[in-house]
């Protein structure tokens, strides 16, 4: 009968043993391919996961960076206010020291005057 063949082990085959072998081979190869695709899929998934995580991290870092930038900006403003505060304090202090300098000067002048009186008295004595 055409189409029915026996192999070496005397098993009945509808297909030509050669084709059967080929088919088996194909099946195996298909299985391998499937594995490969699955593993590829996994790798890609991993990759996407990693990329997403990276994205999140980047986003986080970005926010952080914006925050820091704002902070730095405000810091410089803070510094300005602090500077102006200190500046006004310096002005107050310098006014105070100027007052004291004038007072000191007047006392020195008095000292000179008194010394003059003393000298004059010593001359007379």
């Amino acid at each position: 009968m055409e189409g029915i063949v026996f192999d070496e082990l005397n098993k009945i085959h509808i297909l030509d043993p050669q084709i059967f072998d080929k088919t088996l081979q194909l099946k195996n190869e298909a299985g391998q391919f499937l594995d490969a695709v699955t593993s590829f899929q996994k790798t890609v998934d991993d990759l996407i996961g990693a990329a997403e995580k990276l994205g999140e991290d980047v986003e986080k870092e970005k926010l952080k960076a914006i925050g820091s930038r704002n902070y730095i900006q405000s810091l410089s403003k803070q510094r300005e206010t602090l500077q102006s505060e200190l500046q006004s304090l310096i002005i107050e202090k310098s006014l105070e020291i100027e007052r004291l300098r004038i007072e000191h000067e007047s006392l020195l002048r008095t000292q000179v005057e008194q010394q003059e009186v003393l000298d004059a008295l010593e001359l007379n004595a």
Partner: peptide
């Protein structure tokens, strides 16, 4: 200006 000046 608040400075104290002494005069003898």
């Amino acid at each position: 200006d608040g400075a104290l000046v002494f005069s003898a």
